[in-house]
């Protein structure tokens, strides 16, 4: 893991609304791609279908958000141009979603932490003063609610399952926990958006997220990692400072579009 633990001085933000759309959209594009990597490899057929379904929802949400980002940017880029022709440093997703799938427990723990984050943030954004954003968030929220039911029930099954499943999902939580502070870190962009009622007040949402996560983790007989015991928090994704994993993901996601520009089938 080579991501820096300290944010560089924030670059000038020409367009806060665009930043917010990219952050929300890129979280979903990258996580949707990660989940699609399970297609044909999940432990059981039902789960293969479930992961592909959730991936498709996330890609659909990313499409809405990045299409809107392209409109707001006003440079003629559509959602495909933003997905396939940006470099890793231009992506604004959090580091959590770009982490490799690992085993099924790791994928589900990552998904659960994100799904709870998605419901609390989309719920807030559905009340945004920006009507376009509020409409997209309200639509996505309906999907996030059944995503978290799926990943949350897997946390219970795995945590309260066999010694092996318990060990693996606890290990996944321990490994992933250091990526969660980034989810609620408010840089200048996020702070301005929250003050204007456009974006979520991220630091204020953290307690609710923690409460929802803790409830499930406890029922799953798992233990939340101690705040004092984890390695330094990792962040930087919102400013384009990513782990090395994102470059590999993008290489695979972008190669066809870049090898055959404008191809149709």
């Amino acid at each position: 893991m080579t991501a820096p633990s300290v944010l560089p001085p924030p670059p000038p933000a020409p367009h806060d609304e665009l930043e917010l759309l990219l952050r929300l959209g890129d979280d979903r594009l990258v996580l949707g791609h990660r989940l699609s990597e399970w297609c044909g490899h999940a432990p059981i057929l039902e789960e293969d279908i479930a992961l592909a379904n959730v991936a498709l929802d996330l890609l659909g949400q990313a499409t809405m958000l990045l299409r809107r980002a392209g409109e707001v940017e006003g440079k003629g880029r559509d959602e495909d141009a933003l997905a396939y022709w940006r470099e890793a440093v231009e992506f604004r997703n959090c580091l959590l979603v770009e982490q490799p799938n690992g085993d099924f427990a790791f994928t589900m723990a990552r998904q659960f932490l994100f799904d709870v984050y998605a419901v609390v943030t989309l719920d807030a954004v559905s009340r945004s003063t920006n009507a376009e954003l509020a409409a997209i968030a309200a639509k996505a929220l309906k999907e996030a609610k059944y995503h978290v039911r799926h990943s949350g029930e897997w946390m219970l099954k795995l945590g309260d399952g066999t010694d092996e499943s318990h060990r693996r999902v606890q290990g996944a939580l321990d490994e992933l926990w250091r990526f969660t502070p980034e989810l609620f870190a408010a840089d200048d962009v996020a702070a301005r958006l929250a003050a204007e009622g456009i974006g979520p007040d991220l630091p204020a949402l953290r307690a609710h997220w923690h409460e929802l996560v803790h409830d499930v983790v406890e029922r799953a007989t798992l233990t939340l990692p101690h705040e004092s015991s984890h390695t330094p928090h990792l962040n930087g994704g919102r400013a384009g400072m990513h782990s090395e994993h994102l470059g590999h993901l993008l290489a695979e996601m972008q190669i066809v579009a870049r090898s055959h520009p404008g191809a149709k089938w």
Partner: peptide
């Protein structure tokens, strides 16, 4: 149309 997280 209820709460955010409905498990179990």
């Amino acid at each position: 149309h209820g709460g955010l997280v409905q498990l179990l």
